[in-house]
């Protein structure tokens, strides 16, 4: 029993994609939603945004940062993931807004094409802005170019596209074109900084929050975030919220809750990993 991996591979430096056969998720998934996986009997439950759907397959894209994501990166077609539950969370709020800008940073670009597609389907003009540390970390450029009316690429080191941050590009787009709605998706610090760009202009800006979760269904409260001064559960009240109301500092503080444990788990995993690829062969 389990959910089969159908395709898997590396997209950029430490960023991987896995296509999982999970009809119950694929058939019902909408832009903005996520799923929770548990790789094996001893695994932890981690949330991953649904990045694409094709038939009965769902795609997740992730950066290898901890034990679970490194282990996930070792999976090959034919391997199984013990548990996949979803779709979870509220879908992206979508309507015909006019001009939408979708900004993705690093592995956060993963969620951009599916939102861009939904925005297009709702009759919007869509501008994409994707940014990464360098060209080696950049993902989904072709896919975004295909779906967006125009696409800007930015890298911190100038190795591809604009030399600077996605926020700098957004500033220019906001000034010149005054878009109607903006999504910013990426690491918490990037979302915090980038969404400040649209605040003075009062453009409604949406971020997708990624706190630590356990069940993903509103049962534990681990994913508490503060929005507009109120405590909300990102798993069921989100994951998308109004960027200008989010308390990013609390989010970042809570994301660091298990830093020590994450280090221990990763060290143990690394020392046990050999050519055969992880725990499976070590009992």
């Amino acid at each position: 029993m389990g959910y089969k991996v159908r395709m898997a591979g590396q997209l950029a430096e430490r960023i991987y994609q896995v296509w999982i056969e999970a009809p119950h998720v694929a058939r019902h998934a909408l832009a903005g939603q996520f799923l929770v996986i548990r790789i094996d009997e001893r695994g932890e439950r981690i949330p991953l945004t649904i990045s694409a759907v094709e038939g009965d397959l769902v795609r997740v894209i992730f950066m290898a940062v901890g034990k679970t994501t490194y282990q996930l990166a070792t999976l090959r077609p034919g391997d199984e993931i013990r548990d996949v539950v979803g779709p979870l969370g509220k879908p992206s709020e979508m309507a015909r807004y006019g001009h939408c800008v979708i900004v993705g940073g690093g592995a956060g670009i993963a969620c951009c094409p599916i939102i861009a597609r939904a925005a297009k389907a709702a009759g919007n003009r869509v501008t994409g802005i994707i940014g990464a540390r360098s060209s080696a970390f950049l993902i989904l450029e072709d896919e975004m170019r295909e779906v967006c009316d125009e696409l800007y690429v930015a890298t911190d080191d100038g190795s591809r596209g604009f030399h600077g941050f996605a926020a700098d590009v957004l500033k220019k787009v906001v000034t010149e074109k005054r878009p109607d709605r903006v999504w910013v998706i990426g690491p918490a610090i990037m979302m915090k900084v980038t969404s400040e760009v649209t605040r003075p202009a009062g453009i409604r800006t949406i971020v997708s929050l990624n706190p630590i979760m356990v069940d993903g269904t509103g049962m534990c409260g681990s994913c508490r975030v503060v929005v507009d001064g109120k405590t909300r559960f990102a798993c069921v009240d989100g994951p998308e919220f109004d960027a200008h109301l989010v308390d990013f500092d609390t989010l970042m503080m809570r994301q660091r809750m298990y830093l020590e444990e994450e280090k221990v788990a990763l060290e143990q995993f690394s020392s046990h990993t050999c050519a055969c690829g992880g725990r499976k062969s070590h009992g």
Binding site: R42, G43, E44, R45, K67, T68, V214, M257, Y258, E261, E262, V264, A265, Q268
Partner: peptide
């Protein structure tokens, strides 16, 4: 933990 991956404080 760490035999199982989920931590608790």
């Amino acid at each position: 933990f760490p035999e199982f991956d989920t931590p608790v404080r």
